[in-house]
Amino acid sequence: MKARVFITLKPGVLDPQGKAIHHALEGLGFSGVNDVRAGKLIELDLAESTSDGDIEEMCRKLLANTVIENFRIERLEQVA
């Protein structure tokens, strides 16, 4: 079973990297970009028995720093 964990900065937390990407996009002539926030995607290959609770605990204990980051878990259906 595979799962994806999306880690994003909490709203209101300053994102200097997102800001730099935003400036670079503007520098390339892309207009109409209102804001950019950069995050992380972590792909997990897990035993079938892994519960949602287990994945959430992984996020809380290591994958995300919940002081500044939110996380979202997406389980991927097994492709036959």
Binding site: L14, P16, A20, V67
Partner: peptide, 17 residues
């Protein structure tokens, strides 16, 4: 120390990058 929860807050990328 902040990552271990022994001190509050977090240290992020420098504002000037």
């Amino acid at each position: 120390l902040t990552e271990a929860g022994m001190l509050p807050g977090a240290l992020m990328r420098n504002a000037g990058l």
